[in-house]
Design a protein around this nucleic acid. Structure first.
Lengths: 131, 131
DNA sequence: TACTTTTATACAAGTACTTACCCTAAAGTG
DNA sequence: CACTTTAGGGTAAGTACTTGTATAAAAGTA
């Protein structure tokens, strides 16, 4: 899971900084490109690993697994593996993870507003996003 | 501003993906560790470069400038430089940038909730965040 | 037996992000 | 002249992120 070196002064400041800025705390948990996207797709309910992979085609398996593990470690989702062959693994948001719903929905709303102003995007593109 | 290579297939997929997931669109604009933090601090009004630097001690000047330029290029904020010596430069959210207010406030709310459950954080830490 | 399916893991290589350190302009002040 | 201030730019180095490719286990099916 690529341990992060915490020796630098600035790295330490990063973690102290959330005293002044709650957003910093959030970014420590769900910062990066993929985590909010994964969480968003789990808002509508538990999903199997393979379902997530299909839903987010642009992500590599490596990234998907890696971020799922980090999100699990941060207690934003739980992993449940049924001992069958072939494996059957589902990922589910914890209450903490579900608490991000307003954040993720606000993002979706903003994206829709922005795209309404973007002439390159048609109304067809805006239909049918999860909730 | 470190141009990003857009040649890989997956990179292209990243940009196509927002057809299916509005959150992807958002992450293309404000993904990464620092951008939401910068935007959050601009919610309360225009700020000088040096004010931002003071408000976000954990960021390096390089990162701050780099992200400010990217946010400006993405039309989330505007830069205004007064031709005086020493320089006087202010950064202000555009309407698009202001549109992120619900997102950033939702983040702040979530962070506060999470920290209430965290015994290592005292109530004192929760006081006085911008809005 | 060979092949499929699902959920991964390992390793090498490439790309992007972040930091550290040093430098500039131009006016004002001692 | 020397020194301060503000808003950055330049370069090099280190760290993290991302991809590509190869591999596995174990039951079921052809």
């Amino acid at each position: 899971m690529t341990a992060i070196k915490e020796s630098s002064t600035r790295q330490e400041n990063k973690h102290l900084a959330f005293k002044e800025c709650p957003v910093t705390y959030v970014m420590d948990k769900i910062g990066g490109h993929w985590k909010p996207i994964i969480l968003f797709h789990l808002l509508s309910g538990s999903k199997r690993y393979s379902e997530l992979k299909k839903t987010i085609p642009a992500i590599t398996e490596k990234m998907l697994i890696q971020h799922l593990k980090q999100l699990e470690a941060d207690k934003l989702l739980t992993r449940e593996a049924r001992p069958v062959v072939p494996p059957y693994v589902t990922y589910t948001l914890t209450p903490s993870g579900m608490g991000l719903k307003p954040v993720l929905l606000a993002m979706a709303v903003w994206a829709m507003q922005e795209r309404m102003d973007d002439p390159k995007i048609t109304h067809k593109d805006l239909a049918g996003f999860p909730g």
